[in-house]
Nucleic acid binder design. Structure first.
Length: 770
DNA sequence: TCATAAAACCTTTTT
DNA sequence: GGTTTTATGA
């Protein structure tokens, strides 16, 4: 049989294009699949796995597939099951972090941890770092919580531990010495709490493999076929982990085969240590590696792809790649400029309603934004319009204080060494144990080299008052009771017992704060979650439950059948796709975000983020912005994003362009204001390119900058007072009800005769006093 | 110790 | 605008 015959005969290759088919069939040590957005990489990966199993080249247990989110893992497992049925059992399909937890739980005893270790999220890490900085007087040496947290995270991602870092510091710089001291104490605290932070999960697994080659060999022999998705967003620790796993064993067993999939144009996590070089230098790292390019896009219309290609081509340090589609031009992109974020949101809501009446389901529509703060205006309008929506990510359920409180009870039982958890529940709900008592308990624990949990048992001799002593004793007794239930009982039983005995929910309901009722409901929701967990995981342990809770990602919460519009950040949107996408806040300072301007590679990464957003859309893509945006409760003038003019004008249909607003604001001299496609020849969307490569300042403003910035309507110091009558270009006549703010930030609250109540920025609103 | 009030920070993006 | 830290008094 020739190779072609095999292709023809294999149903797994049916319907695949030649590149995809080759990516499924290629056999070799190392394979890099450069997969453009929407090029069917998940399909290729699952078919590749299926092909390995079907041909008996691998047992399911020999496959390790790493995805970016738990949801992507579940989806891949599901798709593989559709092909292979039960044969997927025993495969490891999960995220880097989940895989590492699984390995660490098995091997923790090798290096001073126990299998019941807890996982600290970034919030927990910060709490601990804050405490340490305070104890060691780090403030006097320039240690800030976020500074230290970021630095430690960066070091761990680079696989530096305390001792290796200590060798490289300048011992004469007191600030560096103090940071080292904090870092050392942080590491010590984690160890004594039997806890790992997020970065540890990766780094400690690498350390484990390096320190115990025979342990590493166990996993090297087990995993013969390793696949890594979203490889462009791996950091150094993840890269090193893959290297360790694909290494040759001590007994000469050859390294596993490695397949990575990625697209450097979609690398958007460098702030988290992702190193684009991992994918750029793959061929050098794995000599003899095969590279396959997938450029045909099966997701979007050609118009959307052309816009995406035009935008990303402005990043100069990339390998040329052109996505193409066979599915026709499709609709033009739609642009809209609102007066305010609320105006922008109103357009989105109206447009979604229109789409919905045309038969587009709510769950195939998504709204993206750069920062979480943008959700406020969107939510207000969505609620007012009774449009079903869901925030993906947002303030996450498991990060709410009341949920963390309750989780810490469970942690205190599962991992009594965890001082952070025990100290959190000491006085929640209130039982009269204050900071002084807490500190005394910690001191006793430190002096006697026991855990805080253990200190609670020896409280009688510590000289606390009878009330405090009694409270601690009963808490300790309760924890013992609950711990006794863990082995036999279900997670929900343990939690129910704890909630009942602590009266946590009742304490919430007893307060006058109206939000506490919602908090009580959240806790009840958590109880429901544990019941659900018990039902679905007959032999799931408390530790397993806590692990799952620690590692949920924003995109994991997505419910495909929810029938709601999804709202999420551009980062969360990666890997997802929708029929209709609204990309909001396409403004300077927001997209690209102002914080990115100073960072090396920042502007290019922002452009990739915009590119990721564009390529999520199948059929309809809307780009929206606002002329003014509230930030920190203050309203500021916003400028259109530079990216807008990187999109060829013939692809973009402005319902209301920034110029339309200027023109109407100025009121005369620019001809009549026309809705519809008004931007032709205006410079909007015409490609002038090369922003990142502009020299520092000689040509500070290009065409549009002049047009827009210099033509912002300026009403000067127009005086308005409650009771004044005004006329607005769009909203007609109305009465001013109130004026707030000062100076250029003055806002008029106006009740329009026909358009209802609006807030307008007096300085720039297209209004005149009657 | 705790409740309320004033004040100070804040916003990138997240496993 | 909203959260979180600090000040103040009961």
């Amino acid at each position: 049989m020739t190779q072609l015959d095999i292709f023809d005969a294999d149903p797994l290759l049916e319907g695949l294009n030649p590149q995809q088919a080759e990516a499924v069939s290629y056999r070799g040590q190392a394979l890099l699949i450069v997969a453009g957005a929407g090029s069917g990489k998940t399909r290729v990966l699952t078919h590749r796995i299926a092909s390995l199993i079907r041909s008996r080249e691998a047992w399911p247990s020999q496959v390790l597939a790493i995805t970016f989110t738990n949801k992507a893992a579940a989806e891949m497992r599901e798709r593989a099951e559709q092909i292979l049925g039960a044969a997927t059992e025993g495969m490891w399909i999960s995220t880097f972090h989940s895989s590492c937890v699984r390995i660490l739980r098995r091997e923790a005893e090798n290096f001073g941890f126990t299998s019941s270790f807890t996982i600290y999220d970034s919030h927990d890490s910060r709490t601990l770092i804050k405490r340490i900085i305070k104890d060691l007087d780090g403030e006097s040496y320039g240690c800030t919580v976020s500074g230290v947290a970021n630095k430690i995270s960066r070091l761990k991602n680079e696989l530096a531990d305390v001792d290796s870092y200590a060798r490289n510091i300048n011992p004469n710089d007191p600030n560096e010495v103090k940071f080292l001291e904090v870092f050392r104490e942080y590491t010590r605290s984690l160890q004594s709490a039997n806890a790992f932070d997020f970065d540890d999960l990766l780094a400690q697994t690498v350390f484990l493999f390096r320190a115990f080659p025979h342990v590493a060999d166990v996993y090297r022999k087990k995993f013969r076929h390793i696949m890594v998705d979203e490889y462009q967003d791996t950091n150094h620790a993840q890269y090193a982990l893959i290297h360790e796993l694909t290494r040759e064993c001590a007994d000469g067993t050859p390294g596993a085969s490695l397949t990575v999939v990625g697209d450097s144009d979609q690398s958007i996590y460098s702030f988290r240590g992702a190193d684009i070089r991992n994918i750029a230098e793959f061929e050098r790292d794995f000599p003899g590696a095969k590279v396959i390019l997938l450029e045909q896009n099966y997701r979007s219309t050609q118009n959307i792809l052309s816009a995406a290609n035009a935008v990303i081509s402005n990043n100069f340090d990339r390998k040329a790649k052109n996505l193409w589609s066979a599915s026709g031009d499709g609709a033009k992109l739609v642009g809209f400029t609102g007066y305010s974020a609320h105006d922008e949101a109103q357009f989105i809501v109206d447009e979604i309603s229109a789409l919905h009446s045309q038969g587009v389901g709510y769950n195939s529509i998504a709204v993206f934004y750069r920062t979480n703060a943008q959700t406020r205006a969107l939510e207000e309008i969505f609620i007012r319009s009774a449009l079903p929506y869901r925030l993906v990510g947002g303030t996450k359920f498991y990060e709410r204080a009341e949920i963390k409180d309750v989780i810490c009870y469970l942690i205190s039982i599962a991992n009594p060494a965890d001082a952070l958890a025990v100290r959190r529940i000491l006085n929640t709900p209130r039982r009269g144990i204050g900071p002084a008592t807490e500190a005394a308990l910690q001191l006793f624990a430190d002096q006697n080299k026991v855990s805080v949990r253990e200190a609670l048992r020896h409280v009688d001799g510590l000289g606390f008052g009878p009330k405090v002593t009694g409270a601690i004793n009963s808490l300790s007794k309760l924890l013992d009771e609950a711990a006794a239930m863990v082995d036999s009982g279900k997670v929900s039983d343990v939690l129910a017992h704890l909630l009942e005995k602590t009266g946590y929910i009742d304490a919430l309901r007893a307060t006058r704060d109206p939000q506490d009722e919602a908090r009580a409901e959240n806790v009840e929701e958590l109880l429901a979650v544990t019941r659900e967990y018990d039902k679905n995981n007959a032999d799931g342990t408390l530790i397993d439950f806590l692990t799952e809770v620690s590692l949920v990602a924003a995109a994991d919460e997505l419910d495909d059948a929810s029938g709601t519009v999804s709202l999420m950040t551009l980062h969360t949107a990666k890997g997802l796709e929708y029929d209709a996408v609204f990309l909001t806040g396409v403004e300077e300072e927001l997209l690209p975000h102002r914080m990115s301007a100073g960072e090396p590679g920042g502007p290019a990464e922002e452009r990739r983020l915009f590119y990721v957003g564009i390529t999520r859309a199948r059929k309809h893509l809307y780009l929206t912005l606002a002329m003014s945006r509230a930030m920190f409760g203050q309203t500021n003038v916003a400028l259109p994003s530079r990216y807008l003019q990187e999109i060829p004008s013939e692809l973009l249909d402005w319902r209301q362009s920034p110029e339309d607003l200027q023109r109407s604001s100025l009121g005369s001299g620019y001809g009549s204001r026309s809705l519809g496609s008004s931007s032709s020849g205006s410079g909007w969307g015409s490609s002038s390119g090369g922003w990142d490569s502009l020299p520092p300042s000689p040509r500070p403003k290009t065409e549009w900058a002049n047009r827009v910035t210099n033509q912002i309507r300026d009403n000067g110091d127009l005086e308005l007072h409650a009771g004044d009558r005004i006329r607005h270009v769009d909203f007609g006549d109305g009465t001013v009800t109130d004026v707030t703010g000062v100076d250029t930030k003055r806002v008029a609250h106006v009740r329009f005769d026909t358009a209802g109540a609006k807030k307008l920025l007096i300085k720039i609103a297209p209004i005149e006093k009657l």
